[in-house]
């Protein structure tokens, strides 16, 4: 096993895998995943490993959507189409069986009206988070489906549609990943060739280049999805 295959056992592979595992995927299931960053990419592949029939991946960054398609996902661009309408259309009006939030507190501030309001509220210290993706994941989840949260939130969330969630019997699963619990099993998955987590790496550099790479990764420049630094 190379360093690049093993490295993501530290965080993003177990986190993406746990997100998919939370959905308790059954044959025929559709899993919708918000966020095609490194964790979202791991969640897409893990959902297929766990038997999902279809994965619908949501983002707006072209190269991230392209990588999601390479993994077999159907992709939706939230700047191009209405995510709720499209997901309903794709699921006979029921919603996805599992909805994974791999975005968390820093949802795109320009993605929707509620995101813009959240952005203003956080700037004025009237709110702590921008939970647009969580709201939408709840709305897009089928009755008695699962909302799986691995995107990180930091505080007290406003306008989360708990009425919809309780009346439709949604199940919420979430955690900071207990990584050690997943290590033996996921190491075996890599050794068996079920998955090679290095597929997500776009940039390789030395530690000295780290400060520049932080900027490139933050700005999503140069097709950057995941950076690996070596001494």
């Amino acid at each position: 096993m190379t360093d690049e295959q093993a490295l993501f056992l530290s965080d993003i592979f177990p986190t993406g895998y746990m997100a998919a595992e939370f959905c308790d995927i059954q044959p025929g299931d559709t899993v919708a995943i918000w966020g095609c960053g490194p964790v979202g990419q791991m969640a897409i592949r893990s959902a297929f490993l766990l038997g999902a029939e279809r994965v619908i991946a949501i983002d707006t960054v072209p190269e991230r959507l392209a990588l999601a398609r390479v993994s077999g996902a159907l992709t939706l661009d939230f700047h191009e189409e209405d995510i709720y309408d499209r997901l309903m259309e794709l699921t006979h009006g029921r919603g996805a069986d599992g909805c994974i939030d791999a975005v968390g507190t820093e949802a795109d501030a320009m993605a929707s009206a509620d995101s813009m309001i959240d952005r203003v509220k956080t700037a004025l210290f009237m709110g702590t988070d921008r939970p647009h993706v969580l709201r939408q994941a709840i709305q897009c989840c089928r009755n008695f489906g699962t909302v799986s949260i691995v995107g990180v939130y930091g505080g007290f969330l406003d306008k989360v549609p708990m009425g919809s969630a309780i009346n439709r019997g949604l199940r919420f699963r979430m955690a900071q990943t207990p990584v050690q619990r997943y290590l033996p099993m996921l190491m075996e998955r890599i050794q068996n060739g079920d998955i090679d987590p290095s597929f997500v790496i776009t940039h390789r550099a030395s530690l000295e280049d780290g400060p520049d790479l932080y900027k490139i990764f933050r700005d999503k420049h140069d097709g950057c999805i995941k950076v690996v630094l070596k001494p």
Partner: peptide, 18 residues
């Protein structure tokens, strides 16, 4: 002795000063 490391999305929260 580190042979490889990566930058995580959550490192960007630190980078962004939040």
């Amino acid at each position: 002795k580190v042979t490889a490391c990566a930058i995580c999305g959550s490192d960007l929260h630190i980078y962004g000063g939040i």
